[in-house]
């Protein structure tokens, strides 16, 4: 017998089942079909304004910085200001996301390049698919628009979130994601909650382990 067949027959022998029971199959089929929600904490719920306030509080708690912008056109100037505040060169790596590609970066004095990161990029910007108020998290989908390497290799990561994409909880994100991508998810769905950190040496919490040392979030209102 193959390893696969052996593992399955062992599981079934231990459970005392054959795998053909209609009731068991129905229970599994129904759960996969209806994707029921467990208890969802109240923290992320409430009006749009309440969700926004919670998102900012939670993101700051995990050492991200958050700035609100009137509209997307204000992004380049804020990025230039932020990079200057961090005392790093005004260079920026990004993907092909149309919401970022069309902005006037040169006008803000920024030198941009497009594509994945090979590890030499200091700064990167991504556009989030959604945000989660409950935990101050951002969801970034991999692909040519927002290459996954930009989330992890640069020192400074900037993520843009449109206010209309701010959800209360992860469950709402999944509903939206199924609608947006269909049955096959993008290669990676990255849930990012603050900058990289480690407490592996004497339980001392330090930022900037292997991933970005800083995470700056721009919420566009218009």
């Amino acid at each position: 017998m193959s390893a696969r067949d052996d593992v399955f027959s062992n599981i079934r022998r231990s459970l005392g089942v054959t795998g053909k029971e209609a009731t068991r199959r129905a229970a599994v089929g129904q759960r996969l079909e209806t994707t029921p929600r467990g208890p969802v904490p109240r923290r992320g719920q409430g009006s749009a304004a309440a969700r926004m306030a919670t998102f900012i509080t939670e993101a700051q708690r995990v050492s991200a910085s958050v700035v609100m912008l009137e509209n997307a056109a204000a992004i380049p100037a804020e990025v230039a200001r932020y990079l200057s505040e961090c005392n790093v060169a005004p260079v920026l790596r990004m993907g092909a996301d149309a919401r970022l590609a069309g902005l006037d970066w040169a006008g803000a004095g920024l030198s941009t390049s497009t594509g994945r990161s090979d590890g030499s990029d200091l700064n990167a910007i991504s556009h989030a698919f959604a945000g989660v108020a409950e935990t101050g998290s951002l969801i970034v989908l991999s692909g040519p628009d927002n290459p996954a390497t930009l989330n992890y290799l640069p020192d400074n990561h900037i993520i843009v979130l449109a206010v209309s994409d701010l959800c209360g909880d992860l469950e709402t994100v999944w509903t939206r994601l199924r609608r947006a991508t269909g049955a096959l998810l993008p290669r990676t769905v990255n849930i990012i909650t603050g900058p990289s950190r480690s407490a592996d040496i004497e339980q001392t919490l330090l930022l900037g382990a292997h991933g970005p040392r800083r995470l700056h979030i721009l919420v566009t209102l218009g």
């Binding site: 290459p147 909650t193 990289s196 950190r197």
Partner: peptide
């Protein structure tokens, strides 16, 4: 900080992975 869902290998058009 990082919760990552990975589904299969790199897709057509993906620049990384």
């Amino acid at each position: 900080v990082y919760t990552t869902l990975s589904t299969g290998p790199r897709r057509a058009g993906d620049p990384d992975g």
